[in-house]
Write a protein that binds this DNA or RNA. Structure first.
Lengths: 343, 343
DNA sequence: TTGTACGCGTTATCAA
DNA sequence: TTGATAACGCGTACAA
């Protein structure tokens, strides 16, 4: 034995331990632990002493030890379909802002819009015994679904609303957003309405479905005017699809894009080719990205509360993790149609 | 005692432990541990048995226990100044792609371009005993610097090149990028060259410095043509500053923007106000964001290897964490001037 | 090459 | 309200 085995204060890392804090405060380690965690059963005088000692040593808990002892980590896993989309970044930021101050460590997983990748990420991250899960949408493999369910880890689903209303979710109705888009364009007197969507995740599809339903009700639906591609959404792709659609269907007089970057591309190509927006064709985007209101012409779009969703979902999860049940599991954050110059 | 104290196999979490794997494989726990970690001193026959057992139980290590026992986590902390900038997203993606397959957990911290926030994040994340650090740039508080240094955690600095060449870094020379920008614009015969920068982080400043130096050498430098603001870079801001500059200095015939989104805003306002680009004023961006080549006119820009930097930095860190020293600590990934229509 | 004994820093359990 | 004791699951140091 190199060091005396009874020397509880021998440190290997340079960091102070709970033991040292306890000694300095003149209490037992467990009392120090309780004091620091704000567990109720500690006398306020002791709490203060412990906190002072901790501050003095600039003590920080060892998350590994804590996780091991409590069989619970302080990490929350967040799975989003993409990072290249500003969309989810704003949501992530908000999540961080809520969770970090509460001492949670946020683990981000990018599923790249793939169910398989999501399943893998989930399997891996579950090893960390996360305290909570923040997932995007409801479209996942059966096995992923089971993993989440059987783990009993508190989970909140973001972006969409659960039709079954059994899951905790914070989002808005994607289909009704699509309907709103159609209604707006129709109210402008447009007759030949198209939908262009990329990155065919469930929400893009749902939006298209709402759009289609509204068109059908107005007897304006033409399946030929639906341009869908699994390719990732981008400015370049938007321009390309826009030109392609107009070439094959020159009579189109309104287009709803599944994401603003597609619409930006369309607006730019319209400029380049002298296609008048909105005179010849109205353009409506989705998500209202920061650049949209500066496009030429300024892009009309459906603004979505990405940041608010992140914040709310994180708070939702916080109460869940605290062991409290939630009265209203489904939180509809709505969306807002911003009419500008392009439609 | 609810459970017999000698029962090493009683589990509290539903998860299999190393003990169980070892029992199933008929070896001691430590042998199982070594086998799973690929430590050389285990007979191949045993390794196979252990791996089979692990697979059968679908065993996954408990990261907390591992971290506690080894006083080392498997997490790598990455600190970037912003997430709303597509820039760093691409870098982060690349980092993930390299580190995750190696079993590292990536902890992302957003400093929001603030030295104080970076210091705080660092202090917090250090509690996780990260195995490695990926930091952006060299501009940080003295205390943050000390924390990194005294921790002895392997660190790689991204985006810029260390002038002292003492630190491991992967990036490119910001000043020479600024010089290249100036040289290009000058070669186009421009005489009244301006620099517009936002989000005055060190790299933006360095770029401006390079630009200025080249202008001075060409006797073309006019301090009045430098528009700098600490406000965060955005399309809207770019348009605003562009108009402002042209109003106060109508003779400006070329502008170098510190970031592409600023340039996008400028191009859009030029369109709106009938200002001819590049005839009246040439516009050059920085970073070559995906949308740039689709702008009207197509934006000339200096393309930066964000993704490659992330990948390389992560690999760099991997060798460092493996205990190997690196022959050439400073890795210059360069940049590329893309001349398109706007300049 | 394999195994034994122990400790990592914290929290749960139970007794005082 | 506080404290003693025993885990939590794994890796290190050493011995065999």
């Amino acid at each position: 034995m190199m060091t005396s085995k009874n020397d509880k204060n021998t440190r290997t890392t340079g960091r102070p331990t709970l033991n040292e804090v306890a000694r300095l405060a003149g209490v037992s380690p467990i009392t120090a632990s309780r004091a620091l965690r704000g567990v109720s059963t500690v006398a306020t005088a002791l709490v203060e002493k412990v906190q002072k000692a901790a501050a003095e040593l600039s003590y920080v808990v060892n998350p590994a030890a804590r996780a091991l002892a409590s069989a619970q980590s302080h990490s929350v896993v967040v799975l989003v379909p993409s990072l290249s989309n500003l969309l989810f970044i704003e949501t992530l930021e908000a999540i961080h802002q809520v969770l970090r101050p509460k001492g949670f460590e946020v683990l981000i997983g990018n599923t790249h819009y793939s169910r398989e990748e999501e399943e893998n990420l989930l399997r891996n991250y579950m090893a960390y015994q996360p305290r909570g899960l923040l997932l995007t949408g409801f479209d996942r493999t059966e096995s992923a679904r089971r993993m989440v369910e059987s783990s009993n880890v508190p989970s909140v689903y973001m972006m969409d609303l659960d039709p079954g209303a059994g899951l905790n979710c914070v989002g808005f109705s994607q289909t009704s957003a699509g309907e709103t888009a159609a209604a707006h364009l129709i109210s402008r007197g447009r007759k030949r309405l198209a939908y262009i969507g990329a990155q065919l995740d469930q929400r893009t599809l749902l939006r298209g479905e709402g759009f289609r339903r509204a068109l059908q009700r107005a007897q304006l639906y033409d399946p030929a005017l639906e341009l869908l591609t699994p390719r990732p959404s981008s400015v370049g792709l938007g321009g390309e699809l826009f030109l392609q659609l107009l070439a094959s269907h020159p009579d189109v007089d309104a287009i709803f894009f599944g994401n603003d970057d597609l619409a930006h591309g369309a607006l730019l190509e319209a400029l380049r080719h002298g296609i008048k927006v909105p005179e010849q064709v109205a353009v409506l985007g989705f998500n209202d990205l920061p650049a949209s209101s500066f496009m030429v012409p300024r892009l009309s779009s459906i603004s979505t509360p990405r940041e608010a969703i992140g914040r709310r979902a994180a708070e939702h999860l916080l109460t869940l993790m605290a062991g409290n049940k939630i009265a209203k599991p489904v939180v509809d954050m709505g969306f807002e149609l911003k009419v500008r110059e392009s439609s």
